[in-house]
Every structure is written in structure tokens, then in C-alpha cells.
Amino acid sequence: MRKYLLKRIFYLFLTLFIVATVTFFLMKLMPGTPLQNEAKLTASEKASILAQYGLDKPVWLQYFIYIGGIFKGSLGLSFQFSDQAVSYLIGSRMGPSMQLGGQALLVGVVLGIILGAIGAIRKDTWADRVATILSILGIAVPSFVLAILLQYYLGLKLGLFPVAGWSGFSYTILPTLALAASPLAETARFIRTDMVDVLSSDYIELAKAKGLSKFGIVYHHALRNSLIPMVTLIGPLAAALMTGSMVVENIFSVPGIGEQFVKSILVNDYPTIMGVTIFYSALLCLLLLLTDIIYGIIDPRIRLSGNGD
């Protein structure tokens, strides 16, 4: 187990290194400097700005400085806000994004499990059909469409919740709902498929033969066995939340990382794009590693067996 973990951590760093390298050179291919919007500057002023960003050095040196900086926790300076470090920018915007992501994950996963379980237990009945349609809608309706609809109908027309901004819990409700749709759908589909399998397994047959009630079978045997493989959903769900947060935060003006990312893309703020890219990748890599560790701990079938492969 230990050897396996070390190997995984090594690959985590290798992945991040490759991501940083590729990102760096991709960004170097692109036109645009921090000067693009300030045409009136004198030559010496331009030179000093370029020097501030280290852009006067040869590309290979910039690369080593950048990679070296990452180890010290520095991701360079933002083009858009010339006095802000990218790492500070990300750090200051992490709070809302994490809160939103966490809330959406909670809502999505809990409702998803309920919906998926109903679908599996009442397989091929109208309840299953309704649950399936709801979960497929969660996949078919893109988060940005859902966000706009929620904002307009629940926020503006009915005035139930604040339309945009970030100053209190009530402001988080609409973006949470918009963001939760995708994890809800993924979870529901996963649980339904898995539980249908579990419910047709021999140990469920034995549980029936014990005389357990339907509820007892689902609660004590089926649910537990279906929830364990759900750990593998952590990665995909996190990725879906990152995707969703970009548009949802934008639509609801939430001062989060996703909103910043889109802004940076639109104004060609390369250092920030690179920084957020590396941040997102690191987050996902960590979660995937965590998935493996948790899986090893909670699944008695693979516990003690030494390799999580």
C-alpha cells in the first residue's frame, strides 16, 4: 500500500509538471502582452513593465523561473491586475467557489442517491421513469441554460431569491441549485445502474430468504454496497463542478475562481489562465488520489489486499 501511494504521488507531480510545461508553452504561442491595452506608454515604461513580468528574458529562462516559482507557491503576476500575484488572486476567490461547490455537491449527491435508489428499487415502474427522466434532464440541460432560467424565473419573476451577488446564504441558493443539477444527474444514474446490479446479486437473494423487509434489504445491504463504488465518482463530479462553476459564477456574479477564469480568458490574462489551470489540475489530481485511498479504506473486499489496482 505504501509503495503504491508513493508511486501515485510521484505520478501526481509528473502530471502537474507536464500540465505546467504544456500550459506555459501554449501561452507563449499566443499574441498579447500586458501592454496590449496601453498603447500610449513610452519605450522605457514599456521596458520596465516587461521587466516587472520577467518578459525581457529569453523564453527558456522564463520557463525555469516559472517552474521554480511553482515550487515556492508563486504563479506569477496577473496581467489584468498588474499589482496582484496570481496565487493571491486564486486564494482570495477560493472561498465562494469552495462553498458553492460544497453545497452543490451535498445537494446533488444526496438527492441523486435518493433518486437513483428509487429508480432501482421500483425498476420499470412509473417512479423509475420519473426518476430517470429527472436525472437525464440534469445531464441534458446545460448548466448555463439552467442558471439563466433559475435566475429569471425564480429570482427575477417570483422574487424568491436574490438574482446576483454574494452577500449571505440566500445569495448561494440559486447558484447552488444550478450547479447541483449535473452531480445530481451523474449520481442518480450511477446509483441506479449499480443498485440494479446489486439487487440482482446472490446476497440480496439471501437477505430476502432471511425474511428481511424490502426497506431492510435496501437499507442494510443494497445501499451500502452501492455507495462504496460511488467513491470513484469523486473525480468526475469535481470536474463537472469546475466546469459548471465557470458559467454559473459568471451568471450570478459570484466572486469565485470560475468567474475569474472566464474573465481572464476574455482579456487574455495568460498568467492567471495558467495559474487557474494548474490549480484545477492539482485539485483534481489530489481528489483522484484521495479516491484511491478512501476506496482502499472503506471497501472490505480490497482492504488488506495491499494493492489498490
Binding site: 505520478y11 509528473l14 502530471t15 500550459t23 489540475s281 483534481l284
Partner: peptide, 23 residues
């Protein structure tokens, strides 16, 4: 390994990068 590395980068980020780079 190649697949493992590729799939531990959020796909959206790769797409954004590609789309920005070759805008």
C-alpha cells in the same frame, strides 16, 4: 500512463487552453 495523466487534467481546462491558444 499517458491516459492516466491526460485524464487527471480537467477536460474543460484542456479545452479552454486549446481554444484560447488557437483562438
Amino acid at each position: 500512463r499517458i491516459i492516466e495523466i491526460l485524464s487527471s487534467v480537467p477536460s474543460l481546462v484542456v479545452m479552454v487552453l486549446m481554444a484560447t491558444a488557437f483562438q
